[in-house]
Amino acid sequence: MIKDDVLILTANFGSGHVSVANAINEQLKIYDNDLNIKVVDVVEICSPHLTDEVYKAYEILVKNTQDIYNYFYKKKANKQTMMDKIIYKMYLSKMAKYIQETNPKIIISTFPMCSGFVSMYKEKYKSEIPFITCITDIVDNFEWIYPNTDKYMVATQSVKSKLVAKGIDCNTIQVTGIPVRKKFSDKSSIDIKKKYGIKNSEFVILMMGGGLGLLPEDDEIYTYLDNLENVKTVVITGKNKEKFNYLTKKMNLKNTIVKGFTDEIDELMNNADLLITKPGGVSTFEAIHSEIPMLINNPTLAQEIENANFIENSGIGMIARNSDEIKDMVEKFIISDKLKEELKKNIKEIKKQLDTDMLIDYIENIDQKSIV
């Protein structure tokens, strides 16, 4: 068994990267509770006094200037930007100091910039620390790809094929899916329906907008769902307090449960019949492990669009571009048992393709080499 540190580097640009880091931490602790694991935010290492400001700026960018966000995302699709190079040059020494102080036996990254730092650290300091990058969206974007990476954990076979086409050794790429907490695969003992007064006969729709609560703006959607017969809708607003207050105080919703940030997502997914959501990489695989079909609400961020294309092409969900399409697809889904069965069958097929034990196998192999 490995008894030294495992260092998981991440960042809170959206909740997905940190969620994946925590899921990996959980998986490793289940494997060996004695492992000394550190989950660390790269911004806290590089610029601890500016952490809040950095994340507030990111939130504004994602909410209000998505075109600018997508522009820079696409700029990174095939090459490193000048801004990336400046950041790496400014902060590599701080990262090197931190890595040397923690002296881990293995480093895992769940954020592109972390991968860049570790790659450059290994190159400059001639380090042979085993290094894994876990790509947290269903993408093959260049910003994730760096030399000195020993293993890539990717979401799908398609992403693996695209990385191979970019020159990455196929033996270094493993299709693991995007790691999620174990509770999304386990059926909860909590009777969440009883807790919220949901009848077993009711069709349950769960609507989410990620950690930032990026939900539909059109009031008509909420009114439509609220008026559906024998249907209960649960809306999760996340950190979006403005949306929570609007839905609970301004709209007269009688058949809709509105919740803010909650740790009950797994129970709600495991008891819902349809998930209406933004297609984050983590939420997509939480839904896959919960075996709940998805209705994707108008993806706009570049990586969301790629995630949504995977969902649609794999036959595990549908994409709605506007309010009318959401209503049409909800109605179609409620009345068509054949559609529900087909989507669930496809979800099960996706799950079969995932090597969820890859990380444990990799660590055991490192441990055996260290003993020898």
Score class of each variant (00 low, 15 high):
residue 128 E to R: 13
residue 340 K to E: 01
residue 29 K to N: 08
residue 257 I to R: 00
residue 152 Y to L: 05
residue 143 E to A: 14
residue 369 K to Q: 13
residue 35 L to C: 09
residue 357 D to Y: 03
residue 249 K to F: 04
residue 349 E to C: 14
residue 233 T to I: 05
residue 343 L to P: 05
residue 295 L to T: 05
residue 363 I to H: 03
residue 149 T to P: 04
residue 231 V to Q: 04
residue 140 D to L: 01
residue 335 I to Y: 15
residue 299 P to S: 07
residue 224 Y to Q: 03
residue 361 D to T: 07
residue 169 D to H: 05
residue 312 E to R: 15
residue 265 I to N: 08
residue 140 D to F: 09
residue 40 V to C: 03
residue 130 P to C: 05
residue 190 I to S: 15
residue 50 L to H: 05
residue 252 N to R: 12
residue 162 K to N: 15
residue 351 K to Q: 12
residue 372 V to Q: 14
residue 93 S to T: 13
residue 73 Y to I: 09
residue 138 I to L: 06
residue 204 V to M: 15
residue 130 P to N: 05
residue 49 H to I: 14
residue 112 P to R: 08
residue 26 E to Y: 00
residue 92 L to D: 04
residue 29 K to G: 06
residue 304 E to I: 01
residue 362 Y to H: 00
residue 23 A to L: 05
residue 353 Q to G: 05
residue 171 N to P: 01
residue 116 G to R: 13
residue 309 N to C: 12
residue 345 K to L: 12
residue 70 N to V: 02
residue 352 K to N: 11
residue 241 K to I: 14
residue 235 V to D: 03
residue 263 D to V: 04
residue 266 D to S: 10
residue 238 G to L: 04
residue 87 I to K: 04
residue 319 I to L: 11
residue 59 E to T: 10
residue 312 E to Y: 14
residue 85 K to D: 14
residue 24 I to H: 00
residue 7 L to A: 01
residue 61 L to H: 05
residue 318 M to V: 14
residue 319 I to P: 10
residue 124 K to W: 09
residue 254 K to D: 10
residue 266 D to G: 01
residue 291 E to N: 08
residue 104 P to M: 03
residue 243 K to V: 13
residue 223 T to N: 15
residue 234 V to G: 10
residue 332 K to G: 12
residue 270 N to R: 03
residue 22 N to P: 07
residue 366 I to M: 01
